[in-house]
Design a protein around this nucleic acid. Structure first.
Lengths: 324, 324
DNA sequence: CTGAAAGCGCTTACAG
DNA sequence: CTGAAAGCGCTTACAG
């Protein structure tokens, strides 16, 4: 391995000068700059990150903390984070908490210890309080951890309103809302948007069930409630996964979609286009979400000023076959 | 930050002794072991990986090189790799090549340079020759790179035979095979298994199309060929993605599944259970694949003997609603 | 504008 | 069984 010392020798200068040149810090005369440039090229020198990190206490590693990479929302996000990080010279460590708080904390500790540059968090297991004391640049993605932590999220209230309004426009009179888990910000917001519209409408009957952002439980619960209420003619699900669960439930009860019952989901995962009928949904631009979050984190890392601590990205209503 | 020096001072020994104790290398008397244990606990000492790596030229980082984390096969794999690595004290860096050879090489170089412990490869962009010269422990997952590189893969030939036999047992006479890309090992193997069965059968008519392991192109091509051959009554697709494409094509042509046409896919991604009708498929145990690969890599890293350079995991035929 | 030297926190022959 | 010292490859005051 060729070191900074070799470069210095080759160029006839000290390692200090090479280092200054490499980091563009302090003065280096144009002349020696040119010499160094050549030496570095000829020798094929690459700085040793390890050594650099040991003295600066900084790495180019970004942690991406997700609850479950297997949940279709996260791979898309991971891709965006990875691509943005990569093109800025950063490396991303995949921290899959597997929904365990223990593991999440372990990762956070380890990242701090190993001088990670920053952290993108998409989990809920740990209290905001905990995060406030982390001495790493953090941005929260799709979760509100703490007002002091920059957050990028989708405008969930607006999205839910769009979806609900659309259902009403299509003539739904008896709507089932499959809301997400209590206490989770995005779930609350989507519920809020739904209620806002529905409470201002006339002659609308509403049922509500709670389900995690996942398929199985939603299917089962939807099956029960659809059996109990044959007049339900519309479903607003707070996630595509639960929307698809509801879809299967409706189908197994012999209800035609969208003729007997119309369904709209939330998320815009690609799966929605693959089911039959294709799912109408409030699409978030997941990739963009990840990209913006990473860019925000890079700003924090570089200690650039952040003008906006809460970025809410707009949603789009993608109309497909599960509505009329 | 508390260092090895602090521990030494606290325990009244030199840093060398502390280091020996930490690494369980060289002699340390039982007595001082006990003292050190206490000191370390009291001080809450954690070794600095950076410093350690700088002198050993080894880290606990494993690179996971995938073409596209967004493709449903890989998140499942990533989860397995992450969990196995984590419980063995290793960290995984997500190397998403975004299907670019450039990026792939960049990652490989960077991993070598930063003393990564090892690498799990699931890509095809680069020639085997290239990999042979990498001085990192490598294992290939679901791809055959080079006979010198340990490989773990699914027994694709057997899986394809099972699927094809099943189609024949169900009475299919005119079968469409949607094969995967030329030159890709798993695609060739699945094709081979299919042909083996079909060539030994009587009175079977066969059509073949080629499609990437992906949805859109398969749907389109399937649509064309199903239009041209109304007698096709069975489809063997070399991936679930293309099977689902074929499913949509068949449905939009008004063919009833499984009454008019039976479909079996390959992979066992969870999506298969969400489409309607649910997809019959040859399931690979993706999680297990990732786990075994990681364990194999850890063996290589620790320079333990490897008894088996090609591990082929069995498949399972999961019969659902897309076949009779 | 440049260099000598100390320091980052560890590991590892070597000597005792 | 233990310690002093050199070394891993960088950065960074400090002095010149």
């Amino acid at each position: 391995m060729v070191t900074i010392r070799d470069v210095g020798k080759h160029a006839g200068v000290s390692v200090a000068t090479v280092s200054r040149y490499l980091n563009d810090k302090g003065y280096v005369s144009e002349e020696t700059k040119n010499v160094l440039k050549k030496s570095i090229q000829e020798l094929g020198y690459k700085p040793n990150q390890m050594a650099r990190s040991l003295s600066t206490k900084k790495t180019n590693i970004i942690g991406l903390l997700v609850p479950d990479i297997t949940n279709p929302f996260f791979p898309e996000l991971a891709k965006a984070v990875e691509e943005t990080a990569f093109s800025n010279g950063y490396t991303v460590v995949l921290c899959n908490s597997s929904e365990q708080q223990e593991k999440e904390k372990h990762y956070i500790q380890s990242l701090q210890q190993n001088y990670a540059a920053g952290l993108i968090v998409t989990t809920n297991y740990t209290e905001a309080e905990y995060y406030r004391h982390i001495k790493l640049p953090i941005v929260a993605l799709d979760r509100r951890l703490d007002p002091t932590i920059p957050t990028v999220t989708t405008n969930n209230v607006e999205g839910a309103k769009m979806a609900t309004n659309y259902l009403l426009e299509q003539g739904c009179k008896h709507i089932l809302c499959i809301r997400g888990p209590q206490g989770i910000g995005v779930a609350e917001d989507r519920m809020k948007g739904f209620l806002e519209v529905v409470n201002n409408a006339q002659d609308i009957q509403v049922e509500t069930i709670t389900s995690p952002f996942e398929f199985t439980e939603a299917e089962q619960k939807a099956f029960n409630i659809l059996s109990a209420f044959p007049t339900i003619d519309g479903v607003f699900a707070a996630s595509d996964a639960s929307a698809i669960g509801a879809m299967k439930a409706a189908q197994s009860l012999g209800r035609k979609i969208p003729d007997d019952i119309q369904i709209v989901g939330f998320d815009g995962i690609s799966l929605g286009a693959l089911v039959t009928p294709e799912l109408t949904t409030v699409a978030q631009d997941i990739y963009h979400l990840g990209k913006v979050a990473t860019e925000l984190l890079l700003k924090k890392i570089k200690e650039e000023p952040i003008d906006n601590h809460l970025i809410e990205l707009p949603t789009e209503l993608v109309i497909r076959r599960s509505t009329k």
